[in-house]
C-alpha cells in the first residue's frame, strides 16, 4: 500500500510539473507571436502511429499485471518485454521526429512554438525513458526469479507510473498535434 501511495504522490508532483508546462504552452499558443507556420511541420500521421503503440504498451502492461497476479511468470516476462519494446519503439519514433525537424531547421531556439514543443515533448520522452529504466530493472529481477510472491506491489506500483506517462502523452498529443488540426 505504502508503495502505491508513494508512487501516487510522485506522479502527483510530476502531474503538476506537466500541467505547468502545458499551461505555458497554451498561454503562448494563444498569444499573437505564436508561429503557426511551424505547426505545419509536424507529422501527425507518423507520430499518431507511434502514439498508438505507446497506448498499446499500457494495455500490454495491464496484461503483465494480470498474469503476475495469476502467478503466470512466463507470460509476465512476455508481456513485460513487449511493454518495454513498445516503449522503446515510441522513443525511437520521437527520435526520428526530432531528427527530421532538426533537419528542416526547426529547433528549440527557432521560435515560441519550437521552444514549447521541444520542452513539452522532450520532458515527456525523458519520463518515458525513466519508465523504461524502471521496467527494465523489474524485468531483470523477474528474469532472475525474484518475483514469486503474487502479493508484491512492485509491479502495480511501476504500473501507476507507466500509465501516467501514457496519459500525459495523450494530453500532450491532443494539445500539440490534434487541436491545431481541429482549428
Amino acid at each position: 500500500m505504502e508503495n502505491k501511495l508513494m508512487m501516487k504522490m510522485v506522479i502527483g508532483t510530476e502531474a503538476i510539473f506537466f500541467i505547468a508546462l502545458m499551461i505555458t504552452y497554451v498561454y503562448f499558443s494563444v498569444t499573437p507571436g505564436f508561429n503557426s507556420a511551424s505547426l505545419r511541420l509536424l507529422d501527425i500521421k507518423t507520430t499518431g502511429l507511434f502514439s498508438v503503440l505507446l497506448f498499446l504498451s499500457s494495455f500490454t502492461f495491464w496484461r503483465a499485471e494480470v498474469n503476475f497476479r495469476q502467478g503466470n511468470i512466463q507470460r509476465l516476462k512476455l508481456w513485460m518485454g513487449l511493454t518495454i519494446l513498445l516503449g522503446m519503439v515510441f522513443l525511437f519514433g520521437q527520435g526520428q521526429e526530432y531528427w527530421r525537424l532538426l533537419h528542416e531547421n526547426f529547433s528549440i531556439s527557432k521560435d515560441m512554438f519550437g521552444t514549447n514543443f521541444f520542452t513539452l515533448t522532450g520532458f515527456h520522452s525523458l519520463h518515458v525513458f525513466m519508465g523504461l529504466i524502471l521496467l527494465t530493472v523489474i524485468l531483470i529481477l523477474i528474469l532472475l526469479g525474484d518475483f514469486d510472491d503474487p502479493g508484491s506491489t512492485v509491479i502495480s506500483t511501476a504500473g501507476i507510473y507507466w500509465h501516467f506517462v501514457d496519459i500525459v502523452w495523450m494530453l500532450v498529443f491532443l494539445l500539440v498535434y490534434v487541436l491545431p488540426v481541429l482549428k
Binding site: 503538476i16 500541467i19 499551461i23 497554451v26 498561454y27 494563444v30 498569444t31 499573437p32
Partner: peptide, 18 residues
Amino acid sequence: CIGCSILGLLLTFAPPTL
C-alpha cells in the same frame, strides 16, 4: 479546485481574442 483554477487562470491571462 486546481482543475478549474487552471482553466480560470488561462482565461484570465489569455488575450481577449480567445
